[in-house]
Computed example of a mutant assay.
Amino acid sequence: MTTFNDRERAFEAKFAADEDLLFRITARRNRLLGNWAAEQMGLTAAETDSYAKSVVQADFEEAGDEDVIRKLLGDLVSAGIEIDELGVRSALEAKMAEARRQYIEEAN
């Protein structure tokens, strides 16, 4: 029975580590998205930093990416940027790939 318990603990530890990694990469992605959107809107460096933080915080409103997409789309359209939901989703995917790449590079 000890072997089974050891395997169960190892599985739980790996699951927790994987979830932590995904959380970190997603937070980085959201910061990159915030920087991208701020650039589109022509924000200053100080405004960009504040806006990127607000995008990271927006992800805590509900599970999934819909809260972030809704925030970005609303803010960009309000700023007069011509973009649709597909454009925001494309940026989200590109920034997720960039966040993963950055994380892997830092780990090595």
Score class of each variant (00 low, 15 high):
N35P: 00
E93F: 13
G34H: 14
N5I: 11
G87D: 05
L92R: 06
M1R: 06
D20K: 09
I25H: 11
V55N: 01
D20I: 06
D6M: 07
N5T: 10
V68T: 13
S54M: 12
T2V: 15
Y103R: 03
R31Q: 14
E39F: 01
D18V: 15
F11P: 04
S90A: 14
S90F: 13
E93I: 15
Q102G: 14
F23L: 08
S78T: 11
E85H: 01
D6E: 11
M41Q: 10
A99T: 08
I69A: 05
A107N: 04
R24I: 10
R29T: 11
L33W: 10
I104L: 02
V77I: 08
V68M: 06
R70Q: 13
W36T: 06
V77K: 05
E61T: 12
N108R: 04
K71D: 02
E66T: 11
K71P: 01
A45G: 11
S78W: 03
E12D: 08
F4T: 12
D6V: 10
K14G: 11
F4Y: 12
S90T: 14
S90M: 13
Y103V: 03
V77E: 05
R28G: 13
R24K: 01
N5G: 00
W36D: 08
A17Y: 05
N35I: 14
L86D: 15
L76H: 03
E47Q: 09
T44N: 05
R100V: 09
R101T: 14
E12H: 07
M96E: 07
R101A: 13
A17R: 02
F23E: 04
T44S: 14
A94P: 08
I69D: 00
E8M: 14
T26S: 04
G34W: 13
Y103D: 11
A58G: 03
L22F: 15
R29M: 12
R9L: 09
A79F: 06
D67T: 13
Q40H: 10
R31P: 00
A79G: 02
R24S: 13
E93R: 12
R89C: 04
E82M: 12
E47D: 11
D65A: 10
D67P: 14
A97K: 07
K95N: 06
Q57C: 02
A79M: 04
I25L: 13
D75R: 02
T26F: 02
D84Y: 09
A79H: 07
D65T: 13
S54Y: 04
T48I: 00
D59E: 06
A38I: 01
R7G: 01
T26Y: 00
G42S: 03
V55I: 00
Q102P: 10
T48E: 09
F60G: 10
E82I: 12
T26W: 02
A16P: 04
G87Q: 12
R101W: 10
Y51D: 05
D20H: 12
D75N: 03
F15S: 06
D18R: 15
R24D: 06
E47L: 12
E106Y: 00
F11R: 04
E39N: 13
D67I: 12
S54G: 00
E19P: 02
L43C: 11
L43I: 01
T44Q: 05
T48S: 03
I25A: 10
S90D: 14
D6F: 09
A58L: 07
E106D: 04
